[in-house]
Design a binder for these strands. Sequence first.
DNA 1: ACCTGAACACCGTTCAAGT
DNA 2: ACCTGAACACCGTTCAAGT
Lengths: 187, 187
Amino acid sequence: MTGDTRQTIMDAARATVQARGYNALSFREIAKDVGIKSASIHYHFPTKGDLGAALAKRYTDDAMAYFDSLLDQDLDLETRFARYVAVFRAALANDNRMCLYGVMAAEYGDLPDHVRTEVDAFSAANVGWLVKALGPAHPDLDDTALRDRALAVFAAIEGAQLVARGRGDIGVFDTTIAAYRAAGFMP
Amino acid sequence: MTGDTRQTIMDAARATVQARGYNALSFREIAKDVGIKSASIHYHFPTKGDLGAALAKRYTDDAMAYFDSLLDQDLDLETRFARYVAVFRAALANDNRMCLYGVMAAEYGDLPDHVRTEVDAFSAANVGWLVKALGPAHPDLDDTALRDRALAVFAAIEGAQLVARGRGDIGVFDTTIAAYRAAGFMP
DNA sequence: ACCTGAACACCGTTCAAGT
DNA sequence: ACCTGAACACCGTTCAAGT
């Protein structure tokens, strides 16, 4: 079935990037996982950058499809936001992996341009979503202030994930999110 | 003078890691910068992990020496904290580089054990410092709550840096820190 | 004490060749 | 349409050899 190998390659690659980083991703290693030769991967993704960009794009699309479904459902603000945060927590719960975005943002300096574009798209999409999700709770903030708040909430969640991963302790993520909430910074 | 080459190697390596990541660091590239052969680097640092661990340790020592000097000086809380944040901002101002800690935390899954130990030490030292610096502003918080708050502030700053680097825009860092402050989350 | 060249098994990439 | 083996310039690491 056409496209199948392509998906299998991407699945193997995504797991490795989230666990060990984009630079640690090896075509020969993916090839072993998938059961083809490393040269064959170049048929599906001419360069490593093409694979990285496709990875980031699919990651954003999948995440946003789920996040948008949370907006469609009739949920109260706390529940909706908790489910959003749970997605970032799930990466850590899965063998101390990290959000694909966070890994790639840290490796930004070594990323080809078209991968950077996809990395930017993830953060922009998340900020856009947070503006919609948090808006009702902040009638006091104007558009700019609300957007800045959404950006800050996104950054804070990414930071919680980064520090928790650096400690190898998901409890650090939970404690940090709880402290954000206790300070009244997020719902 | 003994130790000189060792320092030169570390200087070149640190700049590369902060710009492009630990995995992007190449012994042959450092060798060219320093003016020796790549095999010679192994005389000073037997493995890449030894170099990474030494890098992280020196980074923590240097940062903490400066941070502790901020505690000794007679500064008000806002000024002291602003100088702390300025250190993380400076990395971005320097060619969109990132805090060595943030880069390494993101690449945690691919790090040898003794490098992880040094990465952990940086976050622990920063949280300890923040407990001292923020304590006077939070007489209401008990020891545990204050430590959680310090951890959250550290995570939030790292997150601001990560997202700003991912956008390639230092303005995102400034906006995010300003939003944290506007929300009353940090001084 | 410090450096080097040569070798090893790795890496992404290219390309002519297979089916 | 999809895969492969062989070659290229890279990588960290080892080691015998130089000064």
